[in-house]
């Protein structure tokens, strides 16, 4: 039996960039053109193998509209990782991303893994944010960066795999804020991948 590690991940980003779609694609491998805008937050889990561990992602999807930002701390508090999503066709969303990064740096958990997802890469012909900019920025903050398409299922798995790799391996001494670590038999949520 493999060890299961629960990782709290939160999704942040401007409204309408596709946070919920990425989660939906990752967890249910399903895409819906119109997902109801998230209000409050949404919670889903998915377990993926990583090395000799199973990583159970506890994904908290948040609301994008700016006035809901004040609720975000509740969700990034105690997160092992944060996926910050922007829309490659909207420059504004990239600015919002930077704001989130800043907030995380200021108020987020200390060792939080940040992953930048440039969503809607299927619409690259109307791209506003060059990949180069994103890469440069990600590098500057030490974040994983990947352009995804929840619609076409591009790089969504990879995004979370990247996060998994960023998570420091289980160290009995290090028992910080990387989420709770538990050993328990597989529950029904893990059935899909084993």
């Amino acid at each position: 039996m493999m060890a299961i590690r629960e990782l709290k991940v939160c999704l942040l980003g401007d409204t309408g960039v596709g946070k919920s779609s990425i989660v939906c694609r990752f967890v249910q491998d399903h895409f819906d053109h119109n997902i109801s805008p998230t209000i409050g937050a949404s919670f889903m889990t998915k377990t993926v193998p990583c090395g000799n561990e199973l990583h159970k992602f506890l994904i908290w999807d948040t609301a994008g509209q700016e006035r809901f930002h004040s609720l975000a701390p509740m969700y990034y508090r105690g997160s092992a990782a944060a996926v910050i999503v922007y829309d490659i066709t909207k420059q504004d969303s990239f600015h919002t991303l930077k704001k989130w990064v800043k907030e995380l740096k200021e108020h987020g958990p200390e060792n939080i893994v940040m992953a930048i997802a440039g969503n809607k890469c299927d619409l690259s012909d109307i791209r506003e944010v060059p990949l180069k900019d994103a890469k440069e920025y990600a590098e500057s903050i030490g974040a994983v960066v990947v352009e995804t398409s929840a619609k076409n299922a591009i790089n969504v798995e990879e995004l979370f795999q990247g996060i998994s790799r960023q998570i420091p391996p289980l160290d009995p001494h290090e028992n910080g804020n990387n989420g709770t670590i538990k050993l328990k038999p597989t529950s029904q949520a893990g059935r899909r991948c084993c």
Binding site: K105, E110, N111, V113, M114, A138, E139, I141, G142, A143, V144, V146, G162, R165, Q166, P168
Partner: peptide, 15 residues
């Protein structure tokens, strides 16, 4: 450099 741990992450951030 704002946070100490980010230097670690930076190294692993390469795809």
């Amino acid at each position: 450099v704002p946070e100490g741990c980010t230097s670690e992450d930076e190294g692993e951030a390469e795809p």
